Computed example of a mutant assay.
Amino acid sequence: MSSASYSKFQVKNFDPRTLTWWKSKRLQIDMDPPYQRRGRLWSTADKAYLIDSILNGFDVPKIYLADFTWSDSKLNKRRLPYAIIDGKQRFEAIFDFFDGDLVLNADFVLRSDPALKLGGLGYRDLQRQFSAVAEEFDNFHLHVMSVFAETEEPINDLFVRLNRSKALTGAEIRNAMGGPVPEMLREIASRDFFIENVRFSVTRGQDLNTAAKFLLFESLEELQETKKSTLDKFVQRAKAAPSAERSNLELAARRVVDVLRDMESVFLPKDQLLASAGIVPVYYWLVRSLSPKQQNRLRAFLVKFEDLRRKNRELLKEKPDSDKIDGQLVEYDNYNRSTNDQLSHVGRFRILKERFGD
Protein backbone atom coordinates (compact mmCIF):
# COMPACT_ATOMS: atom_id res chain seq x y z
CA MET A 1 0.00 0.00 0.00
CA SER A 2 1.42 3.41 -0.93
CA SER A 3 2.35 5.97 1.70
CA ALA A 4 -0.16 8.32 0.08
CA SER A 5 -2.98 6.21 1.55
CA TYR A 6 -1.81 7.34 4.97
CA SER A 7 -0.95 10.92 4.01
CA LYS A 8 -3.33 12.39 6.56
CA PHE A 9 -3.79 9.93 9.38
CA GLN A 10 -3.65 11.05 12.98
CA VAL A 11 -4.81 9.74 16.36
CA LYS A 12 -5.06 12.18 19.24
CA ASN A 13 -6.90 12.66 22.52
CA PHE A 14 -10.44 13.99 22.28
CA ASP A 15 -11.15 16.91 24.59
CA PRO A 16 -12.34 15.50 27.96
CA ARG A 17 -16.13 15.14 27.99
CA THR A 18 -18.59 13.77 30.55
CA LEU A 19 -20.96 10.85 30.01
CA THR A 20 -23.84 13.34 30.03
CA TRP A 21 -22.20 15.19 27.15
CA TRP A 22 -21.76 11.99 25.17
CA LYS A 23 -25.38 11.08 25.83
CA SER A 24 -26.41 14.41 24.31
CA LYS A 25 -24.32 13.60 21.20
CA ARG A 26 -25.41 9.99 20.74
CA LEU A 27 -27.45 10.71 17.60
CA GLN A 28 -24.36 12.32 16.07
CA ILE A 29 -22.34 9.08 16.28
CA ASP A 30 -22.50 6.51 13.50
CA MET A 31 -22.64 3.30 15.55
CA ASP A 32 -22.60 1.00 12.52
CA PRO A 33 -19.86 2.00 10.08
CA PRO A 34 -18.84 -0.72 7.59
CA TYR A 35 -15.87 -2.11 9.53
CA GLN A 36 -17.74 -2.46 12.84
CA ARG A 37 -18.58 -5.66 14.64
CA ARG A 38 -22.24 -6.49 15.00
CA GLY A 39 -23.66 -4.86 18.12
CA ARG A 40 -25.26 -6.27 21.24
CA LEU A 41 -22.65 -8.96 21.81
CA TRP A 42 -22.18 -8.16 25.50
CA SER A 43 -24.39 -9.93 28.00
CA THR A 44 -26.45 -7.87 30.44
CA ALA A 45 -24.02 -8.82 33.22
CA ASP A 46 -21.05 -7.64 31.10
CA LYS A 47 -22.71 -4.26 30.49
CA ALA A 48 -23.64 -3.87 34.15
CA TYR A 49 -20.02 -4.64 35.08
CA LEU A 50 -18.88 -1.69 32.96
CA ILE A 51 -21.27 0.59 34.88
CA ASP A 52 -19.85 -0.91 38.09
CA SER A 53 -16.34 0.03 36.92
CA ILE A 54 -17.41 3.60 36.14
CA LEU A 55 -19.18 4.15 39.49
CA ASN A 56 -16.23 2.70 41.37
CA GLY A 57 -13.68 4.84 39.57
CA PHE A 58 -11.86 2.09 37.72
CA ASP A 59 -10.14 2.72 34.42
CA VAL A 60 -12.26 2.12 31.32
CA PRO A 61 -10.45 1.23 28.06
CA LYS A 62 -10.14 3.94 25.44
CA ILE A 63 -12.84 4.50 22.85
CA TYR A 64 -11.77 5.37 19.31
CA LEU A 65 -13.91 7.59 17.09
CA ALA A 66 -13.44 8.60 13.49
CA ASP A 67 -13.67 12.40 13.75
CA PHE A 68 -15.25 14.08 10.74
CA THR A 69 -15.52 17.55 12.28
CA TRP A 70 -12.20 18.51 10.69
CA SER A 71 -13.41 18.29 7.05
CA ASP A 72 -16.14 17.12 4.71
CA SER A 73 -14.73 13.61 4.37
CA LYS A 74 -15.90 11.18 1.70
CA LEU A 75 -15.73 8.50 4.41
CA ASN A 76 -18.60 10.17 6.24
CA LYS A 77 -21.33 8.32 4.37
CA ARG A 78 -24.02 9.05 6.97
CA ARG A 79 -23.10 12.72 7.29
CA LEU A 80 -22.54 12.52 11.06
CA PRO A 81 -19.70 14.16 13.01
CA TYR A 82 -18.39 10.89 14.46
CA ALA A 83 -18.23 7.15 13.68
CA ILE A 84 -17.28 4.47 16.17
CA ILE A 85 -14.10 2.52 15.44
CA ASP A 86 -13.62 0.71 18.74
CA GLY A 87 -15.81 0.89 21.85
CA LYS A 88 -19.29 0.31 20.49
CA GLN A 89 -20.22 -2.12 23.26
CA ARG A 90 -19.09 0.36 25.91
CA PHE A 91 -21.17 3.17 24.44
CA GLU A 92 -24.18 0.86 24.15
CA ALA A 93 -23.86 -0.17 27.80
CA ILE A 94 -23.66 3.47 28.93
CA PHE A 95 -26.62 4.55 26.81
CA ASP A 96 -28.65 1.52 27.96
CA PHE A 97 -28.05 2.54 31.59
CA PHE A 98 -29.10 6.11 30.89
CA ASP A 99 -32.24 4.84 29.10
CA GLY A 100 -33.33 2.55 31.92
CA ASP A 101 -32.70 -0.63 29.90
CA LEU A 102 -29.94 -1.76 32.26
CA VAL A 103 -29.65 -1.97 36.05
CA LEU A 104 -26.73 -2.58 38.39
CA ASN A 105 -25.86 -6.19 39.12
CA ALA A 106 -27.52 -7.55 42.28
CA ASP A 107 -24.14 -7.90 44.03
CA PHE A 108 -22.99 -4.35 43.20
CA VAL A 109 -20.96 -2.69 45.98
CA LEU A 110 -19.97 0.99 45.93
CA ARG A 111 -16.38 1.06 47.15
CA SER A 112 -16.65 4.58 48.56
CA ASP A 113 -19.71 3.62 50.69
CA PRO A 114 -20.26 -0.16 50.91
CA ALA A 115 -23.22 0.31 53.23
CA LEU A 116 -25.39 1.70 50.44
CA LYS A 117 -27.77 -0.89 48.98
CA LEU A 118 -27.57 -0.15 45.24
CA GLY A 119 -27.77 -3.63 43.70
CA GLY A 120 -30.55 -3.94 41.10
CA LEU A 121 -31.08 -0.17 40.80
CA GLY A 122 -31.23 1.71 37.52
CA TYR A 123 -30.08 5.21 36.60
CA ARG A 124 -33.43 6.85 37.43
CA ASP A 125 -33.46 5.07 40.81
CA LEU A 126 -30.06 6.60 41.54
CA GLN A 127 -31.28 10.04 40.51
CA ARG A 128 -34.25 9.79 42.90
CA GLN A 129 -32.64 8.06 45.86
CA PHE A 130 -28.87 8.57 45.58
CA SER A 131 -28.37 11.74 43.54
CA ALA A 132 -24.69 12.05 44.46
CA VAL A 133 -23.99 8.62 42.97
CA ALA A 134 -25.95 9.54 39.82
CA GLU A 135 -23.85 12.71 39.51
CA GLU A 136 -20.66 10.66 39.72
CA PHE A 137 -21.89 8.67 36.73
CA ASP A 138 -22.99 11.82 34.86
CA ASN A 139 -19.62 13.50 35.31
CA PHE A 140 -17.37 10.53 34.57
CA HIS A 141 -14.89 11.34 31.78
CA LEU A 142 -14.41 8.75 29.06
CA HIS A 143 -10.98 8.48 27.51
CA VAL A 144 -11.84 8.99 23.83
CA MET A 145 -9.38 9.13 20.96
CA SER A 146 -10.11 11.11 17.78
CA VAL A 147 -9.00 9.48 14.55
CA PHE A 148 -8.47 11.66 11.47
CA ALA A 149 -8.07 9.89 8.10
CA GLU A 150 -8.67 10.66 4.44
CA THR A 151 -9.02 7.03 3.33
CA GLU A 152 -10.68 3.95 4.75
CA GLU A 153 -7.53 1.80 4.81
CA PRO A 154 -5.89 3.19 7.97
CA ILE A 155 -9.22 3.15 9.86
CA ASN A 156 -9.76 -0.49 8.89
CA ASP A 157 -6.19 -1.27 9.85
CA LEU A 158 -6.62 0.44 13.23
CA PHE A 159 -9.82 -1.49 13.94
CA VAL A 160 -8.13 -4.83 13.27
CA ARG A 161 -5.07 -3.89 15.35
CA LEU A 162 -7.20 -2.77 18.30
CA ASN A 163 -9.17 -6.03 18.20
CA ARG A 164 -6.30 -8.45 17.64
CA SER A 165 -6.61 -9.71 21.23
CA LYS A 166 -10.40 -10.08 20.98
CA ALA A 167 -10.51 -13.09 18.67
CA LEU A 168 -12.16 -11.42 15.69
CA THR A 169 -13.83 -13.89 13.36
CA GLY A 170 -12.55 -14.27 9.82
CA ALA A 171 -15.66 -12.48 8.56
CA GLU A 172 -15.06 -9.50 10.87
CA ILE A 173 -11.44 -9.17 9.74
CA ARG A 174 -12.40 -9.44 6.06
CA ASN A 175 -15.12 -6.84 6.60
CA ALA A 176 -12.39 -4.38 7.58
CA MET A 177 -10.00 -5.17 4.73
CA GLY A 178 -11.28 -2.56 2.32
CA GLY A 179 -11.59 -2.89 -1.44
CA PRO A 180 -14.75 -3.73 -3.40
CA VAL A 181 -15.62 -7.13 -1.92
CA PRO A 182 -16.51 -6.19 1.70
CA GLU A 183 -19.10 -3.69 0.48
CA MET A 184 -20.56 -6.31 -1.87
CA LEU A 185 -20.75 -8.81 0.99
CA ARG A 186 -22.54 -6.32 3.21
CA GLU A 187 -25.08 -5.72 0.43
CA ILE A 188 -25.59 -9.47 -0.07
CA ALA A 189 -25.96 -10.03 3.69
CA SER A 190 -28.66 -7.35 3.83
CA ARG A 191 -30.99 -9.47 1.66
CA ASP A 192 -34.15 -10.92 3.18
CA PHE A 193 -32.70 -14.43 2.94
CA PHE A 194 -30.23 -13.62 5.72
CA ILE A 195 -32.71 -11.57 7.73
CA GLU A 196 -35.81 -13.75 7.43
CA ASN A 197 -34.87 -17.28 6.29
CA VAL A 198 -31.63 -18.40 7.93
CA ARG A 199 -31.82 -19.94 11.37
CA PHE A 200 -28.11 -19.86 12.23
CA SER A 201 -26.76 -16.95 14.29
CA VAL A 202 -25.35 -13.96 12.40
CA THR A 203 -24.07 -11.96 15.39
CA ARG A 204 -20.39 -12.58 14.59
CA GLY A 205 -20.56 -12.13 10.84
CA GLN A 206 -21.68 -15.64 9.87
CA ASP A 207 -23.92 -14.04 7.24
CA LEU A 208 -20.95 -12.15 5.77
CA ASN A 209 -18.94 -15.37 5.80
CA THR A 210 -21.66 -17.24 3.93
CA ALA A 211 -22.09 -14.35 1.49
CA ALA A 212 -18.34 -14.53 0.76
CA LYS A 213 -18.71 -18.19 -0.20
CA PHE A 214 -21.58 -17.40 -2.57
CA LEU A 215 -19.60 -14.60 -4.22
CA LEU A 216 -16.50 -16.77 -4.55
CA PHE A 217 -18.53 -19.51 -6.26
CA GLU A 218 -20.12 -17.04 -8.66
CA SER A 219 -16.90 -15.21 -9.48
CA LEU A 220 -15.22 -18.47 -10.54
CA GLU A 221 -18.47 -20.11 -11.67
CA GLU A 222 -17.75 -23.36 -9.84
CA LEU A 223 -17.71 -24.80 -6.32
CA GLN A 224 -14.53 -23.92 -4.44
CA GLU A 225 -12.76 -24.49 -1.15
CA THR A 226 -14.15 -21.97 1.35
CA LYS A 227 -11.63 -22.07 4.18
CA LYS A 228 -10.68 -18.83 5.92
CA SER A 229 -7.37 -18.49 4.09
CA THR A 230 -9.08 -18.89 0.72
CA LEU A 231 -11.75 -16.28 1.48
CA ASP A 232 -9.11 -13.89 2.86
CA LYS A 233 -7.07 -14.16 -0.35
CA PHE A 234 -10.22 -13.63 -2.42
CA VAL A 235 -10.93 -10.33 -0.64
CA GLN A 236 -7.30 -9.17 -0.66
CA ARG A 237 -6.80 -9.97 -4.34
CA ALA A 238 -9.84 -7.89 -5.30
CA LYS A 239 -8.33 -4.78 -3.65
CA ALA A 240 -5.72 -4.55 -6.41
CA ALA A 241 -7.85 -6.01 -9.21
CA PRO A 242 -8.04 -4.17 -12.56
CA SER A 243 -11.30 -2.52 -13.53
CA ALA A 244 -12.35 -5.43 -15.79
CA GLU A 245 -12.04 -7.88 -12.92
CA ARG A 246 -13.99 -5.57 -10.64
CA SER A 247 -16.75 -5.41 -13.25
CA ASN A 248 -16.87 -9.20 -13.27
CA LEU A 249 -17.16 -9.18 -9.47
CA GLU A 250 -20.09 -6.79 -9.69
CA LEU A 251 -21.81 -9.10 -12.17
CA ALA A 252 -21.14 -12.05 -9.87
CA ALA A 253 -22.69 -10.13 -6.95
CA ARG A 254 -25.81 -9.47 -9.03
CA ARG A 255 -26.08 -13.18 -9.81
CA VAL A 256 -25.84 -13.94 -6.10
CA VAL A 257 -28.71 -11.56 -5.38
CA ASP A 258 -30.80 -13.21 -8.12
CA VAL A 259 -30.25 -16.67 -6.63
CA LEU A 260 -31.04 -15.39 -3.13
CA ARG A 261 -34.41 -14.16 -4.39
CA ASP A 262 -35.13 -17.73 -5.47
CA MET A 263 -33.91 -19.09 -2.12
CA GLU A 264 -36.24 -16.71 -0.28
CA SER A 265 -39.12 -18.44 -2.08
CA VAL A 266 -37.81 -21.96 -1.50
CA PHE A 267 -37.18 -21.72 2.25
CA LEU A 268 -39.42 -20.78 5.18
CA PRO A 269 -38.77 -18.02 7.73
CA LYS A 270 -36.15 -19.21 10.22
CA ASP A 271 -36.12 -22.51 8.39
CA GLN A 272 -34.85 -25.52 10.33
CA LEU A 273 -33.13 -26.63 7.12
CA LEU A 274 -30.95 -23.50 7.46
CA ALA A 275 -29.97 -24.06 11.10
CA SER A 276 -26.37 -24.81 10.12
CA ALA A 277 -24.35 -22.38 8.01
CA GLY A 278 -22.18 -25.22 6.68
CA ILE A 279 -24.80 -26.64 4.32
CA VAL A 280 -26.13 -23.32 2.98
CA PRO A 281 -23.51 -22.87 0.20
CA VAL A 282 -24.45 -26.31 -1.16
CA TYR A 283 -28.14 -25.39 -1.09
CA TYR A 284 -27.23 -22.16 -2.89
CA TRP A 285 -25.55 -24.07 -5.72
CA LEU A 286 -28.44 -26.52 -5.86
CA VAL A 287 -31.09 -23.78 -6.14
CA ARG A 288 -28.95 -22.11 -8.79
CA SER A 289 -29.00 -25.29 -10.90
CA LEU A 290 -32.78 -25.76 -10.88
CA SER A 291 -35.61 -24.34 -12.94
CA PRO A 292 -38.40 -22.39 -11.20
CA LYS A 293 -40.67 -25.43 -11.50
CA GLN A 294 -38.07 -27.67 -9.88
CA GLN A 295 -37.46 -25.13 -7.12
CA ASN A 296 -41.13 -25.39 -6.14
CA ARG A 297 -40.63 -28.96 -4.96
CA LEU A 298 -37.09 -28.59 -3.59
CA ARG A 299 -37.93 -27.92 0.05
CA ALA A 300 -40.17 -31.00 0.35
CA PHE A 301 -37.33 -33.06 -1.13
CA LEU A 302 -34.80 -31.66 1.36
CA VAL A 303 -37.08 -32.34 4.33
CA LYS A 304 -37.50 -35.96 3.21
CA PHE A 305 -33.77 -36.26 2.49
CA GLU A 306 -32.87 -35.07 6.01
CA ASP A 307 -35.36 -37.51 7.52
CA LEU A 308 -33.79 -40.36 5.55
CA ARG A 309 -30.33 -39.29 6.71
CA ARG A 310 -31.45 -39.31 10.34
CA LYS A 311 -33.00 -42.79 10.06
CA ASN A 312 -29.94 -44.08 8.21
CA ARG A 313 -27.62 -42.83 10.97
CA GLU A 314 -29.78 -44.52 13.61
CA LEU A 315 -29.73 -47.78 11.68
CA LEU A 316 -25.96 -47.56 11.20
CA LYS A 317 -25.53 -47.10 14.94
CA GLU A 318 -27.89 -49.90 15.95
CA LYS A 319 -27.15 -52.42 13.17
CA PRO A 320 -23.86 -51.51 11.44
CA ASP A 321 -23.94 -54.72 9.36
CA SER A 322 -27.46 -54.24 8.03
CA ASP A 323 -27.86 -54.50 4.25
CA LYS A 324 -30.50 -51.75 4.47
CA ILE A 325 -27.90 -49.07 5.22
CA ASP A 326 -27.83 -46.48 2.42
CA GLY A 327 -24.17 -46.12 1.43
CA GLN A 328 -24.74 -42.87 -0.43
CA LEU A 329 -26.21 -41.26 2.69
CA VAL A 330 -23.18 -42.45 4.67
CA GLU A 331 -20.98 -40.86 2.00
CA TYR A 332 -22.95 -37.60 2.32
CA ASP A 333 -22.48 -37.62 6.11
CA ASN A 334 -18.75 -38.11 5.65
CA TYR A 335 -18.59 -35.14 3.29
CA ASN A 336 -20.55 -33.12 5.83
CA ARG A 337 -17.72 -33.39 8.36
CA SER A 338 -15.49 -30.97 6.41
CA THR A 339 -17.94 -28.39 5.16
CA ASN A 340 -15.35 -25.99 3.71
CA ASP A 341 -13.46 -28.48 1.53
CA GLN A 342 -14.03 -28.26 -2.21
CA LEU A 343 -14.49 -32.02 -2.34
CA SER A 344 -17.21 -31.72 0.32
CA HIS A 345 -19.10 -29.04 -1.60
CA VAL A 346 -18.86 -30.99 -4.85
CA GLY A 347 -19.75 -34.33 -3.27
CA ARG A 348 -22.79 -33.11 -1.35
CA PHE A 349 -24.09 -31.19 -4.36
CA ARG A 350 -23.66 -34.26 -6.59
CA ILE A 351 -25.58 -36.51 -4.21
CA LEU A 352 -28.41 -34.02 -3.71
CA LYS A 353 -28.72 -33.42 -7.45
CA GLU A 354 -28.73 -37.16 -8.24
CA ARG A 355 -31.39 -37.94 -5.66
CA PHE A 356 -33.52 -34.95 -6.59
CA GLY A 357 -33.62 -36.05 -10.22
CA ASP A 358 -35.15 -34.08 -13.09
Results as ranks from 00 to 15, higher is better:
His345Pro: 01
Phe193Thr: 02
Leu168His: 04
Lys8Glu: 13
Phe14Gly: 04
Gln342His: 08
Thr44Asn: 13
His143Lys: 15
Asn312His: 08
Leu286Ala: 04
Asn296Lys: 15
Leu116Trp: 04
Ile195Cys: 10
Gly178Ala: 07
Leu220Val: 15
Val330Ala: 07
Asp326Thr: 02
Val202Ser: 14
Asp258His: 13
Arg254Leu: 13
Asp125Lys: 04
Ser201Trp: 03
Asp67Phe: 05
Val198Ser: 00
Tyr35Gln: 10
Phe148Pro: 00
Phe137Asp: 07
Val144Thr: 07
Glu92Tyr: 01
Arg38Gln: 14
Phe95Leu: 12
Gly178Val: 03
Asp232Asn: 14
Pro180Leu: 12
Glu136Phe: 05
Phe301Val: 05
Glu218Asp: 12
Leu274Pro: 00
Thr44Ala: 14
Phe130Lys: 10
Ala253Gln: 13
Gln28Lys: 14
Gln295Asp: 03
Ser219Asn: 09
Asp157Pro: 01
Ala300Trp: 04
Phe97Met: 06
Gln294Cys: 06
Asp59Pro: 09
Arg124Gln: 15
Asp99Phe: 08
Lys353Ala: 09
Asp341Met: 09
Gln295Gly: 05
Val303Cys: 08
Asp192Thr: 10
Phe140Met: 04
Leu65Gln: 04
Leu352Gln: 02
Pro33Ile: 10
Arg254Ile: 04
Val11Cys: 13
Arg174Ser: 03
Leu302Tyr: 08
Leu121Gln: 11
Ala45Ser: 14
Ile63His: 03
Gly100Val: 04
Glu221His: 10
Thr69Ile: 11
Val266Gly: 00
Tyr49Cys: 05
Phe267Val: 02
Tyr332Ile: 00
Ser43Thr: 15
Pro81Ser: 12
Met145Phe: 07
Asp157Tyr: 04
Arg355Ile: 05
Lys23Met: 08
Ala238Thr: 02
Phe194Asp: 01
Pro154Asn: 11
Leu65Met: 14
Ile279Ala: 12
Val330Thr: 12
Gln36Leu: 06
Arg261Gly: 11
Asp192Arg: 15
Ala167Glu: 12
Ala244Ile: 13
Val330Gly: 01
